[in-house]
C-alpha cells in the first residue's frame, strides 16, 4: 500500500504547496446550516408525533415507530423527486444524521441500481451504503446489552 506514513520529502514538499491553494471546507457555515436544517427535520418529526398522539391511540412512547416510518416515507419521496441530494449538499450532516439520511442512503442506492434488475440490482445493492450502519449498529447494541446484563447480574448497577 502507498501508506500515508512513508512520505518522501518530495511528496511532503508538494503537499504543503498544494495545501496553500486548497479551498477549505467552510466548517462554521456548514455547522450552522446543519443545525438549522437538522432542527427543521426534527420539528417536522415532532409535528408528526403529535399528529399520531392526537388522532390515533399512540402514546409518546409508541408514537415514535409510525413517526419514523412517516419520516422515511417523506425522505423517499424527496429522494425520488431529486430534492434530497440538493438538500444534502446544502445542509450536510443536518440532512444526513436524522433517520431521513439513512432512508435516503438506502433509497438512492435502490434507485441507482434499478437498471441492473430487481434481484442483482436493487436487492443486492440497496444496503451498500447503509449496510455498515445496520451491521455495526446491531453489533454495538448487542455488546452494550451484554455488558449491561453482566453488570446487573454482578450487582454493580
Amino acid at each position: 500500500m502507498g501508506g500515508q506514513n512513508k512520505k518522501t520529502p518530495d511528496q511532503e514538499k508538494y503537499q504543503q504547496l498544494e495545501q496553500k491553494h486548497e479551498t477549505k471546507r467552510p466548517v462554521l457555515k456548514n455547522c450552522i446550516r446543519a443545525f438549522w436544517v437538522g432542527g427543521l427535520f426534527c420539528l417536522v418529526g415532532q409535528a408528526i408525533t403529535y399528529f399520531y398522539i392526537y388522532f390515533f391511540n399512540f402514546t409518546e412512547q409508541t408514537a415514535s415507530n409510525p413517526t419514523v416510518a412517516t419520516m422515511i416515507f417523506i425522505a423517499m419521496l424527496l429522494t425520488g423527486f431529486g430534492v434530497y441530494d440538493r438538500l444534502g449538499q446544502f445542509a450536510g450532516a443536518g440532512s444526513a444524521v436524522p433517520v431521513t439520511g439513512f432512508g435516503n442512503a438506502v433509497i438512492s442506492a435502490a434507485i441507482e441500481h434499478r437498471t441492473e434488475g430487481f434481484v442483482l440490482g436493487v436487492g443486492s445493492n440497496m444496503f451498500k451504503l447503509a449496510g455498515s450502519v445496520l451491521l455495526f449498529g446491531v453489533f454495538s447494541a448487542f455488546i452494550i446489552a451484554l455488558l449491561k446484563t453482566i453488570l446487573i447480574n454482578m450487582g454493580v448497577i
Binding site: 420539528l43 399528529f51 430534492v83 438538500l87
Partner: peptide
C-alpha cells in the same frame, strides 16, 4: 424545501379539523 413546507402546512391544517368532541 418547498415540499417540506407543504408537508408541515398539511399537518397543521389537518390537526385543525379535530375529531375530539
Amino acid at each position: 424545501m418547498k415540499k417540506l413546507i407543504i408537508v408541515t402546512v398539511l399537518f397543521i391544517s389537518l390537526s385543525g379539523c379535530s375529531k375530539h368532541e
